[in-house]
Design a protein around this nucleic acid. Structure first.
Length: 386
RNA sequence: GCCAGGGUGGCCGAGCGGUUUAGGCGGCGGGCUGCAGACCCGCUACACUGGGGUUCGAAUCCUCACCCUGGCUCCA
C-alpha cells in the first residue's frame, strides 16, 4: 500500500481514499499573470507522476485544478500592457498549457477559473455570515478565525510579527482574513461591488467539483500558510467535516540558495531552460529528487540529469522490443515500484533505472524493456531513440 | 519561536545494518588532434560532525549534543 507524507500530521501515512476505486484531488494552480518557472514545473510534474502512479495502481483519479484569474497582479500587468485583466489571464493560461504540454504533464480532468465561480463564492460568504463565522467591518467581509476554532490544521505557531501588523487594521481577531472586499468595482454582490478573497475561491471550486471532502489537496509548500490553513477553516465551518484527508506539499526549487519566487525577481522560466536542455532532461532533473526535498537549480545538476537521461535512453534503445522478463529484470521492476510506493521517491526510482541501465549496457541483463516502458508511462519521461 | 531537511573523500552527491562502500566534477596518465578544446580509454579518494547506546557487526537503528540550510507577507 502506498505511503504519503501528510503535512497535517507530519508523518508518512498509508494512502486510503474514501472510495476504494476513486481518488479526488484538488491541485492549486498558478495565479496567471506571468510565465511559469521551474518551481511551477516541479509542482505539476511531481503531481503528474503521483497521478500516473495512482492510475497504474488501478485508481480512477479525478483531478481538478484551478487558475487564479482574479488578482491585483493581473490588474497591474494589464494596466502596464494596455490590456484587460481578462486578456492577460487568458494569455498566461495558454502559456501554462504550452509549457506543461511540452513537459508531458497530463491534463487535469477539469480546469476551473476563479472568475467563473463568483456566484458560488458569494453563496459561501452569505452562508458564513448566516452561521456567524463571518462579519462585516469597514469595506470588507471578514472570516472570524477565533470564532471558528482558530488555526491548527497545518500550522501550530505563527510569527508574532505578523500578529502586531494585522492587529492594527480593525478586525476582531488578528488572523481574520477577507472573504469579500468591497471596492466599488469588480463583481456585483449583495454586500456591494467588489472582489472575492483568495481562499474562498479554492473552497468553492474544489467543493463544487469534488464534494465536501477531498482525498488529496496538492500544492507548493508556500501555500500552507495562509492559503490552505484558511481553506481548511472555511470548509470546516461550512460542512463540519475535515476538508482534506491528505495535504501534500511540494518543496521549493532554489536558485542561488534562495526560493525561486515570482515576486523576488530570481527565477528561471521553463521555456528559457528548454532552449538549452530538452524537456525530457528537465523532467528527469525534477524527478531525480523526492518532491519533499529542496533542490538547487544549477547548470551542474542539469548536466547531470542530461547524462542520466542519455544513459537511460541508450539502454532503453538497446532493450526495446525485448519483452521477456528475467528474474533479475523483475527484481528491478519491483524496486522501481516500491520506491514510488514509499512517498513517491522518484529519485530512488530513477536510481534503480540507472543501475538497470548500466547492467543492460554491459550486456548483463536482457528483456528489460517493460521497465523502460514504466519510465515512460509512470514517470512520464519519453524515451527518444539513441 | 514553529515546521521541514541536512552534516559522507578536494567539491557536488548516492548509499539507510554486513559483500567490489554509486555516480558526476576536478586531478593524473594515455588515445585522438599541428596546439588547445570537445570526445574516448584508464587511474585517482578504504570518507562518513561529536559523545553514549543497541548489535556478532553501524555512515546506515536509538539517544543526547553541537553546527548548518530553507520556509513561516503575496508566492508552486
Amino acid at each position: 500500500m502506498m505511503r504519503i507524507f501528510n503535512t497535517r500530521t507530519g508523518v508518512k501515512e498509508f494512502f486510503i481514499p474514501q472510495d476504494p476505486f476513486e481518488v479526488k484531488v484538488y491541485v492549486c494552480g498558478p495565479t496567471v499573470y506571468d510565465l511559469c518557472h521551474v518551481g511551477h514545473a516541479r509542482t505539476y510534474v511531481n503531481f503528474d507522476v503521483l497521478k500516473r502512479y495512482l492510475t497504474s495502481l488501478g485508481y480512477n483519479v479525478i483531478h481538478v485544478q484551478n487558475f487564479t484569474d482574479i488578482d491585483e497582479k493581473i490588474d497591474h500587468r494589464a494596466k502596464k500592457e494596455g490590456l484587460s485583466p481578462r486578456e492577460v489571464a487568458e494569455r498566461f493560461i495558454m502559456e501554462y498549457f504550452f509549457d506543461m504540454d511540452s513537459l508531458n504533464v497530463t491534463r487535469a480532468t477539469r480546469y476551473t477559473k476563479a472568475s467563473e465561480y463568483v456566484p458560488k463564492i458569494i453563496k459561501i460568504t452569505e452562508r458564513l455570515l448566516e452561521l456567524g463565522y463571518a462579519y462585516r467591518s469597514g469595506d470588507a467581509i471578514y472570516f472570524d478565525v477565533e470564532g471558528a476554532g482558530g488555526f491548527g490544521e497545518l500550522v501550530r505557531d505563527l510569527k508574532s510579527a505578523i500578529v502586531d501588523e494585522v492587529r492594527a487594521s480593525g478586525k476582531r481577531g488578528p488572523f481574520d482574513f477577507v472573504l469579500w472586499r468591497i471596492t466599488g468595482e469588480g463583481f456585483e454582490s449583495p454586500f456591494g461591488r467588489g472582489v472575492p478573497g483568495w481562499h474562498t475561491e479554492c473552497v468553492a471550486m474544489s467543493m463544487d467539483n469534488l464534494g465536501e471532502v477531498l482525498d488529496i489537496h496538492w500544492g507548493g509548500k508556500d501555500l500552507i500558510y495562509p492559503h490552505h490553513e484558511c481553506e481548511a477553516l472555511i470548509a470546516k465551518a461550512l460542512t463540519g467535516k475535515r476538508f482534506v484527508k491528505y495535504w501534500v506539499h511540494n518543496e521549493f526549487v532554489l536558485l542561488k540558495g534562495q526560493k525561486m519566487s515570482k515576486s523576488s525577481g530570481e527565477r528561471a522560466y521553463i521555456r528559457d531552460v528548454l532552449k538549452r536542455y530538452s524537456a525530457e532532461v528537465l523532467r528527469t532533473w525534477i524527478l531525480s529528487s523526492n518532491y519533499r526535498e529542496k533542490i538547487e537549480f544549477s547548470e551542474e545538476s542539469l548536466r547531470k540529469a542530461q547524462l542520466l537521461y542519455e544513459k537511460i535512453s541508450r539502454a532503453a534503445t538497446k532493450a526495446r522490443g525485448n519483452e521477456g522478463m528475467g528474474q533479475c529484470a523483475k527484481d528491478y521492476a519491483e524496486l522501481f515500484m516500491s520506491a514510488l510506493d514509499d512517498d513517491l521517491e522518484t529519485g530512488q526510482a530513477l536510481s534503480v533505472v540507472e543501475e538497470l541501465s548500466d547492467r543492460v549496457l554491459e550486456g548483463k541483463i536482457e528483456g528489460a524493456w517493460r521497465i523502460f516502458s514504466l519510465v515512460e508511462s509512470v514517470l512520464g519521461i519519453k524515451i527518444r531513440p539513441h
